[in-house]
């Protein structure tokens, strides 16, 4: 079982990232849950979602000590890095975060998500770059499942953006591998 918190500011597409990930797990027949933060904290502050992908029945959908935290901006790192399990994985969007995490008992990878996304055509695909980094580092779902899930989650009118998103995913995977 992997418990993941994905966080950023409103508009970075963190909710969609979580939904695509959970959807990919479902396509593979796994147990999944997606729980969003909702309410006033979504304006201005951090938006986040809790995603669990598991082989077994999921207990709490609320993640209090995640295996993986994806921080798309600094407030998200400050808020969620302290909750990581010992030895957990912190994925930092280094396009927007210059600070170093304080904890030394976790694994950290830095992905310049906005820059890599801009290189493939739109920095709005930064969320897909980060998603690529997740699935590269934590082998929970296959990339093909992510792409199928993306097609289900994106409205028809945005389907022309799928090739760009696929490219962004791959860039994220490559960056995480290095």
């Amino acid at each position: 079982m992997k418990e993941i918190i994905i966080a950023g500011f409103g508009g970075q597409g963190v909710m969609l990232m979580g939904q695509v990930l959970a959807g990919a797990g479902m396509i593979e027949g796994k147990e999944v849950s997606w729980l969003p933060s909702y309410g006033p904290e979504m304006r201005g502050g951090t938006a986040n979602c809790h995603v669990i992908v598991s082989e077994e029945r999921i207990g709490s959908p609320f993640v209090s000590s995640p295996d993986v935290v994806v921080a798309m901006n600094l407030p998200s790192m400050d808020k969620f890095a302290p909750q990581l399990k010992e030895g957990g994985l912190l994925i930092i969007n280094s396009s927007l975060i210059d600070d170093e995490p304080e904890r030394k008992d976790i694994r950290v990878i830095k992905i310049p998500a906005n820059e890599l996304a801009a290189e493939v055509g739109s920095d709005r695909a930064a969320n897909m770059v980060a998603l690529g980094a997740i699935i590269e580092k934590v082998k929970i779902v296959e990339v093909d499942s992510i792409i199928s899930s993306l097609k289900k989650n994106l409205p028809e009118r945005h389907h022309k953006l799928i090739p760009l998103n696929e490219e962004a995913l791959k860039r994220g995977m490559e960056a995480a591998r290095e």
Partner: peptide
């Protein structure tokens, strides 16, 4: 509760 309402599951 808010959790049941807001969460997504298959």
């Amino acid at each position: 509760d808010g959790m049941i309402g807001q969460m997504m599951e298959p």
